[in-house]
Design a binder for these strands. Structure first.
Lengths: 134, 134
DNA sequence: CCGTTATAGCTCGGTAGCCGATATACTTCG
DNA sequence: CGAAGTATATCGGCTACCGAGCTATAACGG
């Protein structure tokens, strides 16, 4: 069954969205956009591909189907396994964040005192990233 | 130049390893193993592929070469851009961790009081993950 | 009345990072 | 002398993700 362990960001956020309550596909898209401050918009290919995969792996499962305003809503729910995996992944990420933060802090400190042998960046948090602003 | 934004875990840890001080390939492997508590062992294909890619993208750059005990050591150094990207990625992960933690906590709380309409998992943190224990 | 937007579902091909295996070479140890 | 450890690098395959496109209904605007 090989639950794929380093969850990629989209997958991680899908599970996170479902942790609160069962949701349908389109709802997940808007929820993920919200909890990532609009930084990540799930593509249909990513969403439904991930949903199928996660269902196969037993991390999520179909919850129910509703018809609201003539449109079908297919709800998914986080399983116990899914909850456990999400918790484990969150811990892993927390450790990574901590390790990186510590090293970055040390780097900044080094840049502050006179010991900077190198240009020593001011560590500006504003970078232009891929798929950035228009 | 499209700096690839959601850094995968191996890439993230390579940058983290280099944040402290310039290191050579093999040193990065051991360092990453250390700061991930042995959970992740970088494969050569991953390491050198990533190093080439990150060099092209300007996140790391060659630092110096040494010959220690007849063996070549090629050192890499984190650039200013690399530092900024690592910082930005760390922030992104921190937010994701926070969002997931919050939802997981809410879920546990719901399971504790009597309001559990669903089986309500005990949220066991022990999962068998891919490439799990021997 | 018709076109556009929003909601809601799904499919398919291409891209690219990671894994696993493999190769080379030098040093040290048994 | 061979095995293990250090240190570099390449190549093929897997697969998650992206991007684009498709269908359908409801609601709004011209």
């Amino acid at each position: 069954m090989t639950t794929p362990v380093p969850l990629r960001e989209p997958t991680f956020l899908i599970l996170t969205a479902l942790a609160r309550e069962p949701m349908h596909g389109y709802g997940i898209v808007t929820e993920v956009a919200a909890l990532s401050d609009g930084r990540l918009t799930l593509r249909p290919g990513t969403l439904y591909g991930a949903l199928d995969r996660l269902t196969d792996e037993g991390l999520v499962e179909p919850d129910r189907e509703e018809i609201v305003g003539g449109r079908l809503r297919r709800y998914y729910r986080l399983t116990d396994t899914g909850t456990a995996v999400l918790a484990a992944e969150t811990e892993r990420l927390r450790r990574n964040v901590e390790a990186a933060s510590q090293r970055l802090r040390a780097r900044t400190a080094r840049a502050s005192d006179g010991s900077a042998a190198r240009p020593a960046p001011a560590v500006r948090p504003a970078v232009r990233l891929a798929g950035g602003p228009a």
